[in-house]
């Protein structure tokens, strides 16, 4: 464990907590993409299957349980409890266009052709594009509530911090996982324009408005 990975995990934890709290306290999931949340649930389930086969640490296991729990709680809130506030019209990204290519890519490019490894690889590829429906929705609505932008900033930062963790592990432990690194770069790059808007607008107290 290193400071980059720990702060990345905490940023990720903060993001999922912000999201659940935002929906629970405002009793509304306006502006949130349910499709991205479904993709995240698939990411966590396919990546954390080793919960039942490998015990790494209490920290590792508890974080995995929290991420899976929070993502299903969010989906429950969005598609059941507060489904009246779910914005179907603006959440129109076709997630099949993300699922099919990532499944195919995981079957073609992976470390080992075993069930766990291919599912883990699929999860890594899917996570790198899972935020697209959410970013697409923000671009369609043209704006985002500030709490939603804090959620996106924390979520986007987590994988950016993981990039620093991988650089550290490469030099300190001579260990690297190329599939995770390339996907992590793609994932973080997708947030770049959002990061720019967040830093230049939201941090100055303005609302996140996309140029029309």
């Amino acid at each position: 464990m290193n400071i980059f990975r720990l702060s990345g995990d905490l940023s990720h934890l903060l993001a999922v907590i912000i999201l659940v709290l935002k929906i629970w306290t405002t009793r509304s999931c306006a502006g949130i993409s349910g499709k991205s949340q479904i993709l995240f649930a698939i990411v966590y389930v396919t990546r954390y299957l080793d919960l039942v086969t490998t015990f790494v640490s209490v920290y590792n296991t508890s974080m995995k349980v929290i991420f899976i729990g929070a993502s299903f709680a969010t989906i429950y809130l969005m598609y059941s409890k507060f489904k009246a506030t779910y914005d179907h019209n603006h959440d129109s990204f076709r997630i099949e266009f993300l699922l099919a290519p990532t499944v195919i890519l995981a079957l073609l490019i992976n470390q080992k052709f075993t069930v766990l490894e291919v599912l883990w690889t699929f999860s890594i590829y899917l996570e790198s594009v899972a935020i697209l429906p959410q970013l697409f929705m923000v671009s369609k609505t043209g704006e985002a509530e500030s709490i939603t932008s804090h959620y996106l900033f924390a979520l986007g930062s987590y994988r950016g911090l993981y990039l620093l963790n991988w650089i550290y592990r490469y030099y300190a432990e001579d260990h690297y996982e190329l599939i995770a690194i390339v996907s992590g770069i793609v994932q973080t790059v997708l947030y770049c324009d959002f990061f720019y808007l967040y830093i230049t607008k939201v941090l100055k107290g303005k609302k996140l408005q996309l140029p029309a």
């Binding site: 990975r5 995990d9 990720h12 080793d50 086969t53 490998t54 790494v56 640490s57 590792n60 974080m63 995995k64 991420f67 470390q111 080992k112 766990l116 883990w120 993981y162 963790n165 260990h175 996982e177 995770a180």
Partner: peptide, 10 residues
Amino acid sequence: NFHRKEKDEL
């Protein structure tokens, strides 16, 4: 099983 151990990241 060592390889699986390497997957110690979330």
